[in-house]
């Protein structure tokens, strides 16, 4: 437990030193301040009278819907832009561990390689999770106080975002262990992030493709790779209190993450430094 905490604390310390954590924190704070600034709610005798965004008044009956729509926009910005930033920032945190002169000392300690890598992985997930939760919980509280809308969907969506990030981080870990390169890790992860929304249009693609084997390739890639695009739709449904049609994108993405992280751990255990 001592070693695990030390590894997590060390990841935070490095994130602080590289200004990654504070960069995220600053962006999240700016977004929260922006929300406070644009969202003006007039309360008359304990009831909502009007709500205005950028000075435009809206009828109070639409408040719940408006809050949910705004939250889903924030969640999507966080999901796509925040995710890209997180991947960009985390690649360096993973590959720095494999630097010659640093890794030998870590490996000389009575901690298994699996423990070392998982400790670093957990630390990295927590660095990003702390900022995502700060932004989501912060904006949830702002919306709640100002409008009285306290839907839990927005909070649950943050867990989905953290979950998808942890899967993409497994890819960063695997690439980092194999090539020691933050740049390659970013490229591979971004390639997956770009490819998966295209694969999400599986049905359309299958209609457009002429050969059966190319349709098979699309199917295999779709079911194998993480379904970031499909999960973004689930997040939207959660926030808007709409039923989720299928949880398959979540569990299959989870399986992908476990397999890739397992592969990364196996390679790390086999590798000589």
């Amino acid at each position: 437990m001592n070693a695990t905490l030390a590894l997590i604390r060390d990841t935070f310390r490095e994130a602080f030193a590289r200004r990654i954590f504070w960069g995220f924190f600053g962006c999240c704070t700016a977004l929260l301040l922006f929300l406070i600034f644009i969202l003006r709610v007039d309360v008359v005798q304990g009831a909502l009278a009007t709500i205005s965004i950028f000075g435009n008044s809206l009828p109070s009956t639409n408040v719940e819907n408006l809050v949910q729509q705004t939250q889903s926009v924030i969640a999507m910005v966080l999901y796509f832009a925040g995710m890209a930033l997180s991947v960009f920032a985390s690649a360096g945190l993973v590959s720095s561990v494999f630097e010659p002169g640093r890794i030998e000392l870590l490996l000389s300690k009575p901690v298994s390689r699996t423990h070392l890598l998982l400790g670093r992985y957990a630390g990295n997930v927590l660095v990003v999770a702390a900022n995502i939760l700060y932004l989501v919980v912060g904006s949830w509280v702002i919306f709640g106080i100002k409008t009285g809308v306290w839907g839990l969907g927005f909070l649950i969506s943050s867990l989905c975002t953290i979950f998808v990030f942890s899967v993409l981080l497994a890819v960063i870990v695997l690439v980092g262990v194999i090539w020691d390169s933050a740049a390659v890790a970013i490229m591979v992860t971004f390639a997956i992030m770009i490819l998966t929304p295209i694969l999400a249009q599986k049905n359309t693609l299958e209609r457009l493709l002429s050969s059966e084997w190319s349709r098979d390739v699309v199917r295999v890639l779709y079911y194998t790779l993480p379904k970031t695009s499909d999960i973004s739709i689930i997040i939207r449904h959660l926030i808007l209190n709409q039923p989720v049609e299928s949880w398959m994108p979540v569990w299959s993405t989870g399986l992908f993450g476990i397999a890739v992280l397992g592969l990364g751990l196996w390679r790390f255990n086999k590798r000589s430094f």
């Binding site: 070693a3 030390a6 030193a17 030998e104």
Partner: peptide, 26 residues
Amino acid sequence: YLPENHRFPTYMTGWGMLDFYGALSG
């Protein structure tokens, strides 16, 4: 162990470094 071409994390302090590696040593 003290490696030859060590590359201790520069963001750590002397105290912090001993604290980190001490924790890893149990």
